[in-house]
Design a protein around this nucleic acid. Structure first.
Lengths: 238, 238
DNA sequence: ATTGCAACATACTCAGTAGTATGTTTAATT
DNA sequence: AATTAAACATACTACTGAGTATGTTGCAAT
């Protein structure tokens, strides 16, 4: 499977003459066509999603042009617009994929039958680790919070945005519910659950701002950061 | 485009470093014409800054047009470009004002002669309260973190951005230093100070994402939120 | 009472960009 | 072998928006 070229080669501005030279170059080998009965899996678009996520993380939604994404892909707009009706839809799909990974990771540790506090801690750590492992996608998710309804012009887009925000609310509610369960079983002290959860999620989500994977960083390194963040939120500094 | 700003600074010859500091600041400190013997006084550009902060918070830097800011001002671009050389410079000035207010509030509680943990808690609470009281300016500050060096095209802008980021680093170091002081005096347990501080600041900075003042919200309400956030970070949930 | 300039407003330019229309290649199917 | 449609690339349009050039007004010092 062809990989996108992450090291944007020769991203110097294409002058008119350069475009002429480019025009005659041999075509890139195209991706294999879908098999006969194969469903149109999202696997065709994963390259697009990856590059889009990276661009959106680095330059923001408004700061990223479709041509930027295409250039990082080593392709042109044509390829992106073949799969996505609009830039907003592309952003939404990255957002949705990010939330899917997040939900998956956090849901997996929710079955734990420990106290509310123990479960909460596990959820926070899973959340943090997922952030560190999918920083581009999750940075887009974090940006999406701001987007409220600004770039959503069409009715369909507004509906998708409403759906996404509902998912976000449900996700936050997951934590709030466990928090209150902890208050009920005495493992978490009294206090405003909503504010507490917003604080804790903020500490974890903030990784989208400062964290960038270093070279040779191992999974253990990421786990250590995730554990420290989660521990701090549950046990404080004392 | 992007030509150097050679506008008549006729008065005096500015040293190079002074020019860097002055870069991006309002060309003139006053709005209404100065009276005869009147001192320069507080900059009345605060109207522009306020509107810009609000727009940047609601729509982001890239999503805000100068016309948007002007419309909110009840004016036109002419007014804004009379004081600011570029949109980026305007953003930087809002950012700088936000950081100024933040530094002021946090520095004020740093003199406390309590333990590291007590001081840290006071700093976090002051930080949080300042966020809630200046949400537009501080939302811009939070955005500014992302901006790294993307929108900074000219040399002068890049220098201003470097200056701003240095201020941000110093600010974070304030917390890290107190954190380590707390570890030294035994009021804070061992652990990676850098990650811990990033987590705590994240919890507080995250208010820029979710907090919007409600109607009839009193100072006491804000203080309560700030106290809960700070307490959570220091004492955890147990 | 005139002049100079700050403080704007108005009216443009022009580069960048989202989206479209259409051409071209390739692989599966007939 | 011919056909067809997916998977792109190319070329174009229309518009937004940053920045500029220039006009206008009102106050203040002369």
């Amino acid at each position: 499977m062809a990989r996108p070229d992450h090291e944007a080669e020769g991203q110097r501005d294409l002058a008119a003459d350069a475009a002429v030279v480019e025009a005659g170059r041999p075509r890139r080998p195209t991706r294999s066509r879908r098999k006969a009965g194969e469903p149109a899996g999202a696997d065709n678009n994963i390259d697009i999603l990856d590059c889009a996520a990276q661009c959106f993380m680095e330059m923001g939604f408004q700061g990223t042009s479709i041509d930027d994404v295409a250039r990082r892909l080593g392709a042109t707009k044509g390829r992106i617009y073949h799969y996505y009706a609009s830039k907003t839809d592309l952003f939404f799909d990255v957002h949705r994929e990010g939330m899917r990974r997040l939900n998956e990771a956090v849901s997996a540790v929710m079955k734990s039958d420990g106290t509310g506090r123990e479960t909460l801690r596990a959820m926070l750590e899973a959340h943090a680790l997922t952030m560190l492992q999918n920083i581009a996608y999750l940075a887009v998710v974090v940006q999406g919070v701001h987007m409220h309804r600004l770039a959503a012009t069409t009715l369909a887009q507004r509906q998708v945005l409403d759906e996404i925000m509902a998912i976000r609310r449900d996700f936050e509610k997951l934590f709030a519910d466990v928090f209150r369960r902890g208050q009920a079983d005495g493992s978490i002290r009294a206090g405003n659950a909503s504010i507490a959860v917003k604080g804790m999620l903020g500490a974890v989500n903030w990784t989208a701002v400062w964290y960038r994977p270093r070279a040779n960083e191992t999974l253990a390194d990421k786990q250590k950061i995730a554990r420290e963040l989660a521990t701090l939120q549950v046990e404080g500094v004392a």
